[in-house]
Design a protein around this nucleic acid. Structure first.
Length: 277
DNA sequence: CCTTCACCCTGCACGC
DNA sequence: TGCGTGCAGGGTGAAG
């Protein structure tokens, strides 16, 4: 479910309700997430939440001495709830706050996780992350460098968190449509102009999605329970067999690296720069 | 090194 | 109505 914009929206949504609150109670209702949920989570009890940060698709909740790393996987969400709201089926972890509200981690497919770390400890999967796409570290020069000798389809490449973080299946499709690049084009074959367009498109698509509250396809909810609006702005994702908004030709659906891929065969026609014959 | 694939899990839409 | 199939926003690890 959540790509970078949805995680960012989640962060912004919970911040006003949790900052400055102490965690009175940690209730673990289901431990088998992607990584088993540790009893050590209760070390957060009594601590005051000082900050909520995001890196890639990871959300960090900081208190004095410890912090939580939360990944929402495919179907995870965080909600701010009243304590008298009945616990929903997949509300796996509930944090009771000193203002009387609860922060609930909900995840039907359980591909996400919640881990606790000491304040001075940073796990390897965080330190080795690629640059944030919305930062100045993600720029033309960086992009030019990383695509060298990469034969993978450009779509698989921009979804690979080793090179750019936060871009998932929806926004990879959208960014390629926006920059008019064929999703199967080998990364190394992108011309300088295409590189520039794609870097720009990734930034634009992600920031727009954040501005519209993220993309709700089926079940993404903001922490207050409302939906994101970006689904209305999707140009290609999920639109196979409907006319391209630019040229009217039918959007096609193919599979790249096991993920559904949508593109316009006319607007995104330059599959390879190799001159045939 | 690279790419491909199965898999973790539940829910939902679809066809029969 | 029910049942089987395939698919879903992510990421890992093994295999080729």
């Amino acid at each position: 479910m959540p790509e970078l914009p949805e995680v960012e929206i989640t962060k912004q949504g919970i911040m006003p309700h949790v900052i400055g609150q102490s965690i009175d109670r940690v209730d673990i209702h289901h431990r088998s997430l992607r990584y088993p949920v540790s009893d050590a989570l209760t070390l957060m009890e009594g601590g005051v939440i000082t900050d909520v940060t995001r890196r890639a698709k990871y959300l960090m909740i900081h208190s004095d001495g410890f912090y939580l790393v939360i990944h929402l996987g495919m179907s995870g969400s965080l909600r701010i709830s009243q304590p008298d709201e009945p616990r929903k089926k997949h509300d796996h972890i509930i944090f009771g706050l000193s203002n009387g509200l609860e922060l609930r981690y909900h995840d039907p497919r359980r591909f996400g996780f919640v881990q606790i770390y000491h304040g001075d400890e940073v796990p390897a999967y965080i330190t080795k992350l690629a640059p944030e796409p919305l930062s100045s570290d993600f720029n033309d020069a960086y992009f030019k460098k990383i695509i060298q000798n990469k034969k993978q389809p450009i779509k698989a490449f921009i979804m690979d968190q080793k090179f750019v973080v936060g871009v998932g299946n929806i926004y990879a499709n959208e960014a390629l449509f926006m920059s008019r690049i064929h999703p199967e084009k080998p990364a190394q074959d992108l011309k300088p102009k295409e590189q520039k367009l794609l870097v720009e498109a990734i930034k634009t698509v992600l920031s727009r999605a954040i501005g519209e509250g993220g993309t709700t396809l089926k079940d993404f909810v903001q922490p207050d329970g409302t939906h994101g609006y970006f689904a209305h702005s999707l140009s290609v994702y999920g639109r196979d067999k409907t006319p391209c908004i630019h040229c009217g030709v039918e959007i096609q659906k193919i599979v790249i690296a096991q993920r559904s891929t949508y593109f316009c065969p006319v607007c995104q026609s330059s599959k390879s720069i190799k001159i045939t014959k």
